[in-house]
Design a protein around this nucleic acid. Structure first.
Length: 254
DNA sequence: GTTAATACCTGTTCGC
DNA sequence: TGCGAACAGGTATTAA
């Protein structure tokens, strides 16, 4: 998409999860994509107009790229970008949990979610020290801290649960317990930061990110089943934390 | 300032 | 079989 220009933008409804900004299509049309990047779970397109197109797939969103005439849109094709290079980019989102926004430089800099994002989990900037520093002093649970995008960017419920299980850490323990009073990493912070990287790298390698149900995890969605930790013999439990399902083994996750 | 709870949305699954 | 309730996800918003 880099270098391509929006020749036509079609909105097939006025909103996704939230309304499109005013004059969305008009402000995009004629601008060129200077760079397309990702930050946390956001897709970010820097535009020749100076604005920034921010896109989020929610949980069921997907882009389809057609190099020739696209098929007739179905009822979940919500946005159609026709590009100067001939590509037609269609955003499809059955559950409509995604969203798009078009930010001026001023609004981008002041964006409360984007500007406060923590480090990318697969980057060198994310390690035990960074994790411990972010968790130190927090009053919330370790699980809730992992879902806080200011602590680590882009981790979702399933992989937070999987990483805690792999690290042998209880999701219920206070986040601050992985750090010393001075914010230095305890052994738990080393195990957890490594587990997060492992879980994400394996997920990327599998390239099956769209399949949630039916996919087998080590602990997620396995309530009542045997814990898979070697030599554990425990049973997977389930509970709700901050409105999201947590799966864990009380025997091997401390 | 921090943390928790709610709203948003609809395809799928579950229980009666 | 059919129907309605519950559920899942991430973030913006509101409340505590």
């Amino acid at each position: 998409m880099d270098g391509a220009r929006f020749t036509r933008v079609t909105l097939r409804r006025p909103d996704l999860r939230i309304p499109f900004p005013r004059r969305f299509a008009a402000r995009l049309t004629g601008t060129t994509v200077l760079a397309l990047t990702r930050r946390a779970k956001y897709l970010v397109a820097a535009l020749s107009s100076g604005d920034t197109l921010v896109m989020h797939l929610g949980m069921s969103g997907a882009f389809r790229i057609d190099r020739s005439a696209p098929p007739a849109p179905d009822r979940h094709d919500h946005v159609i970008f026709e590009m100067s290079n001939g590509a037609v980019v269609t955003f499809n989102d059955p559950r409509r949990f995604g969203f798009m926004d078009l930010l001026t430089p001023r609004r981008l800099a002041a964006h409360p979610a984007l500007s406060a994002l923590g480090p990318e989990p697969l980057s060198d900037a994310f390690d035990a020290a960074a994790l411990a520093g972010a968790a130190a002093g927090k009053k919330t649970s370790l699980k809730a801290a992992l879902l806080d995008q200011r602590v680590v960017a882009g981790l979702g419920n399933i992989y937070a649960v999987e990483a805690l299980h792999r690290a042998g850490l209880s999701p219920l323990r206070p986040a601050a317990t992985i750090a010393t009073p001075l914010g230095k990493p305890r052994p738990a912070a080393h195990r957890l930061s490594a587990a997060i990287k492992d879980v994400l790298m394996e997920a990327v390698a599998r390239k099956r990110g769209r399949v949630y149900r039916g996919q087998r995890f080590r602990v997620y969605d396995r309530e009542g089943e045997a814990c898979l930790t070697r030599g554990c013999g425990g049973t997977v439990h389930r509970r709700t934390q901050t409105g999201r399902s947590t799966f864990y083994c009380p025997d091997c996750q401390r």
